[in-house]
């Protein structure tokens, strides 16, 4: 049963990932990525992490993906790759490198892991409940937790700063512009 569920979700996750990088339309990409994230959330559940399952769905699928979709739609940037590729040889080389990386990663994963089923029993039953995770977060991982808070604060400031400047800029000429042919009107 476990195996069936695993292979099913794994297939969905893979399909979502591949479809995401292949899709020409950014909206489609976002939706495929959403699919992938959902599948991974399910995998988290299979791995006895109900808390992360929730987070994955609420933060990733809920917040981050919505942000992505929002920006895509706002900018109307569904399809931007219509123009001629300026680095025609870059993609084939990238594929070769990707293949190399894939081989290495798979070798590492296979040889580096155990094929036995992970431990079960009583310890495994109690494993992974949100309470213990929360406790760790506030005891052992108190410092990273705090730093994360600062990172989020910085990110907020960053978005505000970048936004604010944009408003100023509309009233200003852009004196410091380098002449560039690639600027589109």
């Amino acid at each position: 049963m476990d195996f069936v569920l695993f292979f099913l979700t794994a297939a969905i996750a893979l399909a979502g990932a591949i479809a995401m990088i292949v899709a020409r339309n950014a909206v489609h990409s976002a939706l495929f990525l959403l699919l992938n994230f959902g599948a991974i959330a399910v995998l988290f559940l299979l791995l006895q992490s109900p808390f992360l399952f929730t987070i994955q769905l609420s933060i990733y699928a809920g917040a981050i993906m919505v942000l992505f979709l929002f920006v895509v739609m706002l900018l109307g940037a569904e399809q931007v790759e219509a123009a001629q590729d300026k680095l025609p040889w870059q993609q084939p080389l990238a594929l070769v490198m990707g293949a190399g990386l894939l081989v290495i990663a798979m070798i590492t994963a296979v040889r580096g892991g155990s094929n036995d089923a992970p431990p079960g029993g009583e310890a495994a039953e109690a494993f992974g409940d949100p309470a213990s995770l929360g406790e760790l977060l506030f005891t052992k991982y108190l410092l990273p937790f705090q730093i994360t808070g600062i990172i989020l604060l910085v990110a907020v400031i960053g978005v505000v700063v970048l936004n604010q400047q944009r408003n100023q800029a509309q009233t200003e000429e852009t004196p410091g512009e380098r002449p560039s042919s690639s600027v589109q009107p």
């Binding site: 870059q90 990238a94 490198m97 190399g100 990386l101 290495i104």
Partner: peptide, 16 residues
């Protein structure tokens, strides 16, 4: 893209 590719080439070499 180019920069990322060079980066990846480095990664592949180191991992090999």
């Amino acid at each position: 893209r180019m920069y990322a590719l060079v980066f990846t080439i480095g990664v592949v070499l180191v991992l090999s």
